[in-house]
């Protein structure tokens, strides 16, 4: 059971989140504003935070780094705006993931599971990472899908390794580009599209209807 801090100024949303979270066996800790959120997080025992960006007393994007500084727990941002920049900014500020209102309860729980898992097992073990049918051996530079070995170029391997390590969490274009190509290429989304396209052709059962690597337009990629 995990204790999940829910920060939203709308009481009905807090009640809804409580029901959804309890369904997956979590213990919700409601906080109606930034002040209460800081207090609850400071008190300890919180495993993850669901943060609404539209708070009455403080901008959510401002609160995010403050929460991160207070406790090293994953924060999932809940945004009412379709604004891509806001989501990218939240992810850049350290949010583990985001969902957009109106969100799907199952999707929220799935994101939360990934975020909680990521927090626990971030330290790599023997260099072997798995995600669904993908098995990636970092030390031996080998990848297989459904036990079928796949030959990847170094760039393709590096991008896939980042995605697998994220374990279903979204990675922004900027973050992927920076870790694989370096800081100077943060804006070169085209590089990434070419490599993701190549990865799909090699990994997916039907590359025309990709299922493994999911695209979030304007934001980034995640593994499904």
């Amino acid at each position: 059971m995990s204790r999940i801090l829910c920060v939203d100024d709308e009481a009905a949303i807090l009640r809804l989140l409580s029901v959804i979270l309890q369904r997956d066996g979590h213990a919700p800790v409601p906080a109606p504003d930034a002040r209460a959120a800081m207090a609850a997080l400071g008190a300890g025992g919180i495993d993850a935070v669901l943060l609404d960006l539209g708070l009455p007393d403080r901008d959510g994007l401002e609160l995010l780094p403050a929460l991160r500084a207070l406790a090293a727990v994953p924060v999932i941002v809940i945004s009412a705006r379709a604004d891509v920049q806001e989501k990218v900014a939240a992810l850049d500020l350290g949010a583990a993931d985001y969902v957009t209102k109106p969100f799907d309860g199952d999707e929220l729980l799935a994101r939360l599971r990934v975020a909680l898992r990521g927090a626990g097992t971030q330290a790599g073990r023997d260099g072997v990472l798995t995600h669904g049918p993908i098995r990636l051996d970092r030390s031996r530079h080998e990848v297989s899908v459904h036990d079928r070995p796949v030959a990847l170029t170094p760039r393709e391997f590096a991008v896939l390794a980042e995605l697998v390590a994220a374990g279903g969490r979204i990675l922004t274009h900027g973050a992927l580009l920076e870790s694989v190509w370096g800081k100077a290429h943060q804006q070169d989304v085209e590089y990434l599209r070419v490599v993701v396209r190549a990865l799909r052709l090699k990994l997916e059962d039907d590359p025309a209807q990709p299922r493994l690597i999911r695209n979030e337009p304007g934001i980034g990629y995640r593994l499904d």
């Binding site: 209102k101 799907d104 199952d106």
Partner: peptide
């Protein structure tokens, strides 16, 4: 925000 409550509750 109200839409979230409506859809969330309907799903439940």
């Amino acid at each position: 925000t109200p839409l979230t409550i409506i859809t969330g509750r309907l799903e439940l």
